[in-house]
Design a protein around this nucleic acid. Structure first.
Lengths: 110, 110
DNA sequence: ACTAGAAGTAACCAAATGGTTACTTATACG
DNA sequence: CGTATAAGTAACCATTTGGTTACTTCTAGT
């Protein structure tokens, strides 16, 4: 995955409203923009922008069906990120704070 | 983890520069702000702000050591996010696009 | 005590984000 | 055909973000 794409995914998830959209769409796949906006206080256009942001990041996929747009979550980007990190940080997971712990111990010795 | 905290973590990671800071600090634990800023074109203050942003999100931890500040990565927030999402989406991982696939098939029937 | 170097703060600026209202387009349906 | 409804576009505004330069503070070392 390209860095720009990573930016989009993380940026998309960095909003409680958008994470909530993900929850809603995951729980009622095929729902419409209007359906989703029922769950929010904000204007329909506000919600639309959040949905578009998620779609732009690849986290939501949609199908035009007549005058409606049906929404689905797409977890592929999350899986890619997850794999990338598990790779990059594999040796760190076991002892996440090892470096810090050592430093703290050194600091305490003084 | 609180929603605000999630915002901070995702927001922090939604920047190539900050992800790169994470890489640098992970690869040389205990390095200083000045050390990190050597890896960048931008001004030291620019880098400092990125580091503070990461620290604020809990992804970087630092220890004051004399006039220096030593930096360490902290993967705990990542682990929390990872666990939360694998829980929430557990039943979806296996067939990530199931909902969408069904919809596409239905669409194709028409 | 003095100086130099690491870090932090303040003020500023341009661009991006998150929301609004008003208007337009396209489609379903009586 | 005509109308109501789902979606999308445009323009606008306030706030946040991402960077800068200039200045300040603290500490190490001579």
């Amino acid at each position: 995955m390209k860095e720009k794409q990573l930016d989009l995914v993380f940026q998309a998830l960095a909003s409680e409203a958008r994470r909530y959209v993900m929850d809603v769409v995951r729980d009622s796949p095929g729902c419409t923009v209007a359906d989703v906006s029922l769950h929010f206080e904000m204007s329909r256009i506000g919600v639309l922008k959040h949905i578009n942001c998620l779609e732009n990041a690849g986290l939501i996929v949609s199908l035009k069906n007549g005058r409606e747009r049906q929404l689905y979550v797409n977890l592929a980007p999350l899986q890619v990120i997850h794999e990338r990190w598990s790779d990059q940080y594999r040796s760190f997971w076991a002892s996440r704070l090892t470096g810090l712990k050592r430093a703290v111990e050194q600091a305490e010795e003084k």
